[in-house]
Write a protein that binds this DNA or RNA. Structure first.
Lengths: 342, 342
DNA sequence: TTTAGCACTCTCCATCGTCGAGTGCTAATA
DNA sequence: TATTAGCACTCGACGATGGAGAGTGCTAAA
């Protein structure tokens, strides 16, 4: 639906007022803060139109107006093309962390979530790559003690994962090397998830594997290539509680309950995995009931063209979307670059 | 200070009433719930005495009484020797997790914190061993690509830590093996923290090390043996918000701000590191101002006789201390056992 | 088409008075 | 002497009341 330019400006004015300070926005306030050259009465008429069209709503008769989710959506979509807010401090700070933590993507993601929340004053969320998308580079087996073996997984993305498993104590380090070489050559380049499935299928066949080393290799694989959802880092809960939006105690409880279950966040971020650029989910657009009063801005970071994980911001629907979008976008871009340097 | 038996019973009765439901406890309620064979008037007199001695307090004239931190302290110390509540479900559940996660202490600690909060309905906290107490077993260096080397640290506690660092690209895997063997033999058995200090001292001498491999080894060590505080796992925020104690929004904010800064928790748990058995810190006893309205029950888990890390419960001062103590105690004991099986 | 004026609506907040829980004190009792 | 019944008193919780203020919708004039 198209709005004429003036109506649009009024809508945006209301939204900006509301983002700056919660509480219904009155016609007089709009005329004061923005110079439309119109009187409150005219603004009132326009606001009345906007309400009829569903972009604004009144909490009760004779109160000011509040943007609806539809109003936000229109605002975000219109603003998308406009120039982004570039925060110098943000770039510098992020760069500093980047240097410091180049070596460890998990530590970096932890820091990045703090950064996101610090800059946006909302909740920062980052997610590390999961088994479905990381591909195996090679595997190393190191005899640890007796029957214990340390398994070191190298992925193409520069992640390392390790695990201790038990094997036949009779296996020598030389045997382990052969097994590792076998697994590496056999599965290199495939995603961990694929490998897991292949191994399960292989073992299900129950044919006796002639080579006992291969058999041992399969046993090790089935122990190592389990599904693992990727870590989620969440920061800024206290940041968000300082907002006047969270004066309601039940709202806080609801939010915390949702946030604490990281699976929910994973699901949510997975949904945007294939999209290009920052995605915005506003309030009721959210597929999850628990989150229908919050908004999410999220983007994926990639390795080459393959999406690896996601970063995002969670806040009230009354969120500074433009700022959030640029922060998320920059962060995702940075991580993408970081992965390509490797 | 000694209280005569009857006075003590009344104190405990008040505390138990208060633990079950917050809000001042009146004399009539005490006579109804406990059969002292005394009238409310007598109980009133006793309660008045207890107030004078500092074990109880009145929020305002003509309200019931509320236990003070001193009252709780007396209660906890007296009850210490009594038999512990043993929760069958708890043992079973913990055992199940234990089996599942035997291999990875970090994953286990994560689960354990959830368990602690689930059982106690307060906040569960667990802390993994830090560099100050974990001792090096050996180190492995694996050439990854070009100048990148994966460093795998094995500790005596069965922890593995890995890291990618950059080295001279000319170093072959054979060189790396020699360096790893050198480091392992040189530093094995020392804590990571000790090693870090030794390396710093060594490098500070600035004498040219004749052996270039040794020099390279030192460079690698200084990159790898950095201070790292050990992970903290916190669960049950939403659990605790359901309590009537947290109807005050500022209290929630305060708590979250404290909890979110994990360094604070680390410091707190470190304080109890050398104590034997579960420790209880009640409200104002807490050295940290931010936590003076909360109580903490915590215990260390050990490897042999060396304390490795801590588990604990954070809740309101109106906490079910006996239950919390037994839950914490059991959990710590379990982890200790788990480490000794290894 | 815009604007000034005005009556109307609704929330917020402070005030007030009632209700009930619980105390402290005193005098009676075992 | 220790305990108890009785009673006046205190204080917070809660609901009703009413005025102030912000903001609207409508109408008529510019």
């Amino acid at each position: 639906m198209m709005l004429d330019e003036r109506t649009k400006q009024v809508l945006f004015a209301v939204i900006q007022c509301y983002i700056n300070a919660p509480g219904p926005v009155g016609s007089r306030v709009v005329t004061k803060k923005f110079s439309f050259g119109l009187s409150p009465a005219t603004i009132r008429n326009i606001m009345s139109d906007l309400e009829e069209m569903g972009y604004l709503q009144q909490p009760h008769t004779s109160a000011g107006r509040v943007p609806t989710d539809i109003g936000y959506r229109y605002y975000v979509d219109s603003m998308r093309s406009e120039k982004r807010l570039i925060n110098k401090d943000f770039l510098l700070e992020l760069n500093r962390k980047l240097e410091l933590l180049k070596k460890d993507i998990n530590a970096f993601l932890d820091e990045a979530s703090k950064m996101l929340s610090y800059l946006s004053h909302y909740i920062g969320v980052t997610m590390s790559p999961n088994t479905g998308i990381t591909t195996l580079d090679r595997i190393e087996l190191i005899k640890y003690r007796n029957d214990k073996v340390a398994v070191i997984l190298f992925t193409d993305e520069g992640l390392i994962r390790n695990r201790i498993i038990s094997v036949d104590a009779a296996l020598s380090q030389r045997d382990l090397n052969r097994i590792a070489a076998y697994i590496s050559s056999h599965f290199s380049g495939r995603t961990l998830e694929e490998i897991r499935k292949m191994v399960v299928k292989e073992l299900a066949r129950e044919t006796v594997l002639c080579d006992s080393l291969v058999e041992e290799a399969m046993r090790i694989c089935s122990a190592v290539f389990s599904v693992s959802p990727g870590n989620v880092y969440i920061s800024g809960l206290s940041e968000v509680l300082a907002l006047p939006d969270f004066c309601d105690i039940d709202r806080i409880k609801e939010l915390l309950k949702t946030i604490e279950d990281k699976h929910i966040i994973v699901k949510l971020l997975d949904k945007i995995a294939d999209a290009d650029g920052p995605q915005v989910i506003i309030g009721s657009e959210n597929p999850l009931d628990e989150m229908k009063t919050f908004s999410i801005v999220a983007a994926t970071y990639k390795e080459g063209s393959r999406p690896m994980g996601a970063v995002g911001i969670i806040g009230p629907t009354r969120m500074n979307y433009l700022q959030a979008i640029s922060i998320v976008d920059l962060t995702a871009t940075y991580i993408t670059e970081m992965l390509s340097y490797k």
